[in-house]
Simulated scan of single mutants.
Amino acid sequence: MKITLIAGARPNFMKIAPIIHAIQKVQFDGKDISYRLVHTGQHFDEKMSHTFFTQLNIPEPHVNLNCGGGTQAEQTAAIMVAFEKELMENPTDLVLVVGDVTSTMACSIVAKKLNTKVAHVEAGIRSGDLSMPEEINRIVTDSLTDYFFTTTPWAGGNLLKSGVAADKIFLVGNVMIDTLLANQHKFEAPKFWEDYQLKKKEYFVVTLHRPANVDNADKLKEMIHEITSNVKGLPIVFPMHPRTAKIYKELGISAPNLFIVDPLGYHEFNYLVENALGVITDSGGITEETTVMGVPCITLRDNTERPETIEIGTNELIGTDPKAIKPALEKLLSNQWKKGSIPELWDGKAAERIINYLLNL
């Protein structure tokens, strides 16, 4: 069996890594399976260096299609043109896509038009918000997918409601958590840990990048003010997304307990998260990681495609009104935050289940 694995952005490689490791494991056992790793180049990321691949034990991609930049339509078209050529030159039995980036959707379309089966890892997650490009990518990809690998029963329920046959849906767990658990023993303090005099469970981590939160300068300024003013003087470490940094520089904000840092490597960032008193974010993936690590998480979004992090985990969705930040922090700082637990099958073995299912299919 030949599998083509698609990755378009840094988080995709974190999801692909355990799948590659699972393939290598069954290859060692004599199974007839091979893979080709295709990087579409959707996101240019200076941290996608050799060190990144070494850190997570990820092999270098077999090919980089270099399809970065442009509008949504331009990028989708570029990926489709490049991947069509790639797939025709390197036929495969199955194209496996992960997550919900533009590459996920574009490569699924190309594969189906070339009569190649598609497997979607993280199938069925939905926010219900069509203003998010990711939601459109999810819907289109799942409309073409042959094999649906889900993180939770909620995701499977979404697929059943849309008419997907139950025998095509496989609850396997969360490959991002596979990577988290495999690397947890390697987490290390970032270089600034001593400089900022950080102490375990005595600081907050903030990440913000969604347009609803960062594109409006006044709103971003108010959010940062509400955060810095309501943590009882505790340090706040803010690894800043380039999109946010561009706007932040114009705001003239200064607070003695706010530390702006560059984006961090996987091990350093998750060390910060694991040892934080709490996390304030608008990321979906971080809410999964905080749930597994038992760290309180405040999410500044109006909806989420990961309801399990709220229903089961440590996450709370408070919306995008800056005034909602103070009461959430008061609840957290008074030790009234829920403890949370870990969703079913988030045990580090999701990728093994995926490969076993594919071999049997």
Rank of each mutant, 00 (worst) to 15 (best):
G163S: 07
N137L: 07
S143P: 00
S162N: 12
K113N: 14
F148D: 02
P133T: 15
V121L: 05
T102K: 12
V110F: 07
K112L: 08
E135N: 09
M176Q: 12
A182L: 13
D129N: 15
S127G: 12
F170M: 07
W154N: 13
F170S: 10
L160P: 00
K113L: 06
A166R: 15
Y147Q: 04
T179Q: 06
M132T: 13
Y147V: 04
A123L: 09
V101M: 05
T141R: 05
V175S: 06
T145K: 02
L130Y: 13
A182G: 11
T145I: 02
T152C: 01
M176S: 13
F148L: 00
D167M: 09
N158H: 08
T145N: 02
F149A: 02
M176N: 10
A182T: 13
S108N: 09
I109M: 13
L181C: 03
L130A: 11
E134Y: 12
I125A: 03
A123T: 08
E135G: 09
V172Y: 08
G128C: 06
L181D: 01
M105G: 00
D129R: 03
V110I: 10
K117F: 07
M176R: 11
K112E: 11
T152W: 01
S127R: 03
L114A: 14
T145R: 01
T102W: 04
K113G: 05
T102N: 15
T150E: 07
T152H: 02
T102F: 10
S143H: 02
T179R: 05
A123G: 15
K117H: 12
S143W: 01
W154H: 14
L180R: 02
E134L: 11
F149M: 04
K161W: 00
N158T: 00
I125P: 15
K168I: 13
T150I: 06
D178T: 06
E135L: 09
N158V: 00
L144Q: 03
A165P: 15
L160A: 14
N174D: 15
A166P: 12
S108K: 12
S108H: 11
V121K: 04
L171Q: 13
M105I: 04
M176K: 10
I177R: 10
G128Y: 05
D167N: 15
A155R: 01
L130G: 10
M176C: 09
S103A: 14
D129G: 10
E135C: 09
L159V: 09
K161S: 08
N137C: 08
P153R: 05
H120M: 04
V101E: 01
S131I: 02
G163H: 07
F149Q: 03
W154P: 00
N115S: 10
S103T: 03
A166L: 14
I125H: 11
T151A: 09
V172A: 08
V164A: 02
E122Q: 08
S143Q: 01
I139A: 06
L181M: 06
D129Y: 06
F149V: 01
A123M: 09
A111L: 06
F170V: 03
S127Q: 07
K168G: 10
M105V: 03
A111M: 08
I139K: 04
